[in-house]
Every structure is written in structure tokens, then in C-alpha cells.
Amino acid sequence: MRHLLSTGDLSRDEATLILDTAAELAQVGDRSVKKLPTLRGRTVVNLFYEDSTRTRTSFELAAKRLSADVINFSAKGSSVSKGESLKDTALTLQAMGADGVVIRHSASGAAHRLANWVDGSVLNAGDGTHEHPTQALLDAFTMRSRLGRLDGLRVAVVGDILHSRVARSNVLLLTTLGAHVTLVAPPTLLPVSVHTWTCEVSYDLDAVLPKSDVVMMLRVQAERMHESFFPTTREYSRNYGLDGERLSRMPEDAIVMHPGPMVRGMEISAEVADSPRCTVTEQVANGVSLRMAVLYLLLSGS
């Protein structure tokens, strides 16, 4: 592994190695000294062209816990706002000797392009509506630690699949790890090519819920919507929102996940969001361990 661009590039063994490594590194968060010397003297650049709190802080914390030097580069307040191209920014970072570049960009494929321009490792932290590999990995990690296995697990991914990079990365990764994924969304919020994905598709949330071990709710990404995809938010919420009543019809040990940020009252009710079966905060905590694992595996060897 040199880069982490897509979960589709990971073999089952590689994905399992990442999850196992993350499980070991999770202990570091409970120690008195929450730091390992492993990446001392290495430089990690966080290159964020899109707003993000969770992912950027998570990567920053992960890199710092491994003693790497971290440089945060956001589009606002850098030469990017003066019109510099991605390639020139990449060459600048290259010249500064970045060992790893974490990139978030609104254009799908930006991380792939970057990987051709720099010598260091490139970690895709979300490119447009394409992929978000570390999110999918931390989701899989959370499922495995909550439910004890991934093989044969039935996972429903519900909501705005069309604009979701989390959905695509999850389908690719979970299929590799032996889980069965069902996408649930109104037809307007599914990508045209969804029949080529390795998963099932349903328009009926109530039919899928009782047969799911994991229900992953996605946010409706209004900022990427330039036309109307459903009549009203109320109708969307009634058909595809998860409330306490729907939660009670899920299997007893099934869990509810959400990559964040949640919009309470839209795709998830406050009652469900605050229930112990909802793993949102756990996902955030696991995100740090998982990103430490990825940084370790990509940057530490020769």
C-alpha cells in the first residue's frame, strides 16, 4: 500500500490488517501518555479544499499521536484563494518534503490526480461525490467492535446515496469484507449506475429495517443539490427518516450509524440520535484510531 485512494483498491487481507492495527492503537487513547514516537520526523500535510471539522481534526490528532509534524492547509487563507492550481500546490508541498498528504476536495478524482504528482503517500479524505475511504474503514471498525463480525452482516445504507462518497466507499469495502449491503433511497437520490454496484437497492425503508443488523443513515446533502430531488423535507423525513417507532421494528441488537454531521428531525429523530444503539460518537472516537492505523501502515515502512 502506498496511497489510500479508494476502498476498492484494498484486498480483504489489507482491509483486515488496517482494522486489526486500529484495534491495537485504540488503547493509546486510554493511556497516560497518548503518544507514540513512530512517525517522528515525518511530515503530514492536511490539504482541505472543502470545509470539514471532523475529518480534518481527526487526521490531525491521529498524526500528532504518532508524533508526525502536521501542517494544515485550507483553501481559504492560502494561495489557493489567489488562484493557484491543485498541481502547483502539490508541487509546492512536494518541494517542502511532505511524507503524506491528506486531501479533501470537491472534485471527484482529485486524490488520484494528486497521487501522480507527489512522491509521498496520498490519503483521500473525501473527493467530491466519489469516495471517503477512511470513513468507510472506521464504519467497518465500529461494526466489527459492536457486533463482533463483518462476515454475513446485513447493512442498510439509507438516504442521499447520489451525493454520498461514504456510501460508495462503504459498499466497496463491506463487500470485500463479506457483508451484504442494501441501499435504501428514493429513486431520485440513487446514482444512475447503481445497478453496477455490488449491493441491492430498495425504495422501501420499512421492508428493509427488520432484516438489517446495521442501519446507516446519511445526511441529505442540500449544499450539493441544485434541483429538487423530493417534494418536501417533511415527506422525505416521513418515508426515509429513522424515528423511535422504526427503531423498535429493527432487530434487538441492531445498531444505528451516521457518518455525521446529523440533521436531527430530518434523516434521524433526536430520540434515535440519543439512543445507546446509535454509534455516532463511537464512530468519531474510532476514527482517530483508524486514521492512526492508516498513517502508520502507509508512512512507517521503507
Partner: peptide, 21 residues
């Protein structure tokens, strides 16, 4: 006590899997 993350030769070999602590 796994010592992998504290080794002084991490850079000179392919990446190592971690042991249990």
C-alpha cells in the same frame, strides 16, 4: 508489551503488523 511502534528500524524494513499489548 508490544514494542513495534518503538523500534528504531521501522524505516529500513517493510511495514510491520502490530502485536498485542
Amino acid at each position: 508489551l508490544d514494542i513495534t511502534m518503538y523500534r528504531d528500524d521501522l524505516r529500513s524494513a517493510p511495514v510491520r503488523a502490530l502485536g498485542r499489548t
